[in-house]
Amino acid sequence: MGCYHSKKAKSPGYEDPSILSAETPFTVNEVEALHELFKKLSSSIIDDGFIHKEEFQLALFRNRNKRNLFADRVFDLFDLKRNGVIEFGEFVRSLGVFHPNTPTEDKITFAFKLYDLRQTGYIEREELKDMVVALLQESDLVLSDEVIEIIVHKTFSEADAKGDGRIDQEEWKEFVLKNPSLIKNMTLPYLKDITVAFPSFVLNSEVED
């Protein structure tokens, strides 16, 4: 006698939680809880099963129109297929980098990609200055161009160990290991409690962990 198993209709881009769990630090139940969060974020403006840039901005800033260089970079890195939206699998795989159990090396690599604005394989001096200026624009901190130059110059001279005017992945790794606070924002302790935050996943769960 077969057992009756009903599969609910899933949104486009939905991926099997057991596959996502196998590829990430999340349990199957945690992936299902992340799906509850994903459904909320991906339906906040256009209910089509994808997180659009405006929905991402709305979740981060409570403002769908607030452009921010760093949010743009995070969105682009989450959008692994580069099709302009974040799908569920991309969301889970990318958030996996921010899990407390993810190796530091993976976090360091992700941060490097974030800061390598032009994706040249190096963080260049101009990129670093652009990022400092962008940060100042979103904060209340006002610094003169001279002070910005000093900060950038000092940081660059510390990180660019080979002194060739650009920071490569190896130099970045060494620099972060000396200054671990630089990747503090690459860990979200919240991800360990995701099933507590979204207990409604139980209603839609297809497995028992």
Binding site: L60, F70, F98, L128, A197
Partner: peptide, 26 residues
């Protein structure tokens, strides 16, 4: 002059755009 001693990457890491914990706020 405090800001001059700042690490540029440390400054950048405080961006709201890099603070993904906001995604989980109800």
């Amino acid at each position: 002059m405090a800001p001059v001693t700042m690490n540029a990457f440390e400054l950048i890491s405080t961006s709201q755009g890099l603070n993904l914990s906001s995604l989980f706020e109800k």
